[in-house]
């Protein structure tokens, strides 16, 4: 079976125009405009900080608010890119049925839209870092790569999910539930170091401890969030042992997901 990958670079203007439309349309009649994009992570950060003061989560030498904010940034970017991506084909029924351009444009556009919102969150993060007097180091240069990797993870879900959603709208219904579960399986509220201490150092699950830690890291978000925090807040290089299982999973699944998308896209206009 052969799939032809279109030259998506040729469609950069279209992706830019559609992403711009998404942003303009979303915030046009909103007084606070783009500020809404950062209100969600900021609110969650405040709530988590409040909860943390009751239950106590070991965070090392990094203040909890900034640690959780740095976790929420990639998490929310991933979560919203994936859910927007999954809905992107069905949300553009009119275009799908009338005009041809590569259908990959829709999930990609959903992600570019979220990238803009992520960029705004960086302003808040910078302010928090200044408040806690943290200086970024050379390792901050890893951040673009980490974001690119997050995009690939989100695309893996978007391609498969959006194509399947054309046939079964159950996908779009189930996804928010699954994603909110996934948040607890990712080091958002608690840091990865906590999991590592429990499993590797304390061997809390007996002989299964090391295997369990690897399984935990199959979730690409574990590596992503941990690396994001390490590179920006601690100023050290990413922990590749926590990244590797997720990277392998993502690359395999991304290929399969894209294959399914390309196979299904021929019938989008007929089924949608």
């Amino acid at each position: 079976m052969s799939i032809r990958t279109p030259n998506l670079f040729a469609y950069r203007e279209l992706i830019a125009a559609l992403a711009w439309k998404n942003i303009v349309v979303r915030y046009k009649q909103a007084y606070l405009g783009l500020l809404w994009a950062v209100i969600k992570p900021v609110m969650l950060m405040l709530i988590f900080t409040l909860v943390k003061s009751f239950v106590g989560i070991e965070t090392g030498d990094i203040p909890y608010p900034i640690l959780t904010f740095a976790a929420l940034m990639p998490w929310i970017f991933f979560q919203e890119s994936a859910s927007e991506g999954v809905n992107s084909i069905t949300a553009n029924t009119a275009l799908i049925k009338k005009i041809y351009f590569p259908r990959e444009v829709f999930p990609l556009t959903a992600m570019v839209t979220k990238l803009v919102e992520l960029a705004i969150s960086f302003v808040i993060l910078a302010a928090l870092m200044a408040y806690y007097q943290m200086m970024p180091t050379i390792h901050a240069l890893w951040v673009p790569l980490i974001i690119l990797y997050t995009m690939l993870v989100a695309l893996t879900i978007s391609f498969f999910g959006s194509a399947l959603n054309v046939y079964y709208r159950d996908v779009a219904q189930a996804l928010p539930v699954l994603l909110s579960l996934a948040m607890y399986a990712s080091p958002v509220i608690y840091p990865l170091s906590l999991v590592k201490t429990k499993l590797i150092d304390e061997q809390a699950a007996g002989e299964w401890s090391n295997t369990l830690y690897t399984i935990y890291n199959i979730n690409p978000l574990a590596g992503i969030i941990d690396s994001f925090q390490k590179c920006l807040l601690q100023g050290v290089a990413p922990d590749f042992t926590s990244l590797l299982p997720g990277v392998i999973t993502t690359l395999v699944l991304l290929f399969l997901s894209y294959l399914y998308f390309k196979k299904a896209e021929n019938w989008f206009a007929d089924i949608i």
Partner: peptide, 24 residues
């Protein structure tokens, strides 16, 4: 097909141009 009601006429011209593959 690609006209978005929230955008102005001028914005729609640019958006639809992109959709129809006309360079900016």
């Amino acid at each position: 097909a690609g006209i978005n009601p929230e955008l102005t006429g001028r914005e729609n011209i640019f958006l639809n141009g992109a959709i129809l593959g006309i360079p900016k």
